[in-house]
Design a protein around this nucleic acid. Sequence first.
DNA 1: CCCGGAACCTGAAGGC
DNA 2: TGCCTTCAGGTTCCGG
Length: 268
Amino acid sequence: MPELPEVETIKNELSPHIIGHKITNVTILDEKLVRQPSVKEFRSRLIGEKITGIERRGKYLILGLSSGEALIIHLKMSGSLLLKPPERFTRAILHLDNGTTVHFRDPRRFGVMLLVKDKNAIIGKLGPEPLAAEFTPKILAQRLKKRTAPIKALLCDQGFVAGIGNMYADEALFRAGIHPLRSGKSLSGAEIERLHHAIQQTLRSAINKKGASVETYFRPDGQIGTAHFEFKVAHKRGEKCPNCGTPIQRILIRNRGSYFCPKCQKGA
DNA sequence: CCCGGAACCTGAAGGC
DNA sequence: TGCCTTCAGGTTCCGG
């Protein structure tokens, strides 16, 4: 699933192929993908535009256009952006004036594209970037103060902190030795420090591995990422905890599979 | 505002 | 062979 490290990788690897190039055509094979404006207007406002920049905010990719508008892409569960045509599940294609084609592949059809004048209308509600300098243990503590929800749910809440999803939340909590059901406000200062560090280490390490290909994530050139080979608990029910050998448990939190070591992560 | 659960969506994998 | 269930989960919406 594309979370922050996967979207960051896609941004980095797509960038040299698209920056400074003009969109010559837009093929929409699944109209559900285009959230706004209408498919017709989406195409006409996009064709002829030069791509001036690409950035990531949370799990959103934002392509800046010469018109000043922004093409916002969210890959949701199963989306990828590929430079070569995949065998199946192509939902849209961007054609550029240098011959590049960007194929939006999305088996589960959750993915979204929007063309907007003001990107803040979409990304304005996101919480802090977890790898930015502004995201300090102090800020994290402040945001956790009155929250009674499970820490796992808060980490996955994009308004609380942007870019973390199910698998990296599990990995960060394991690294910090914190049980996923602990309420936000129950965490001690030392635990918040550990969690802050664990979040940044987990995400940085995954970016270095070009993301985790647990299911349908591919890099633009079709290669997989290797961050999932480093996972300690995510998607490892029944396997042994690398620290203590206790079998990894799976429980549901907010209807999401949550994996943890019941011995190393205490205090539910 | 905060919390939790349902809904959206479809393929892969395993059991019988 | 084929049917059924489970698992995967980012986001939005809704009710309490």
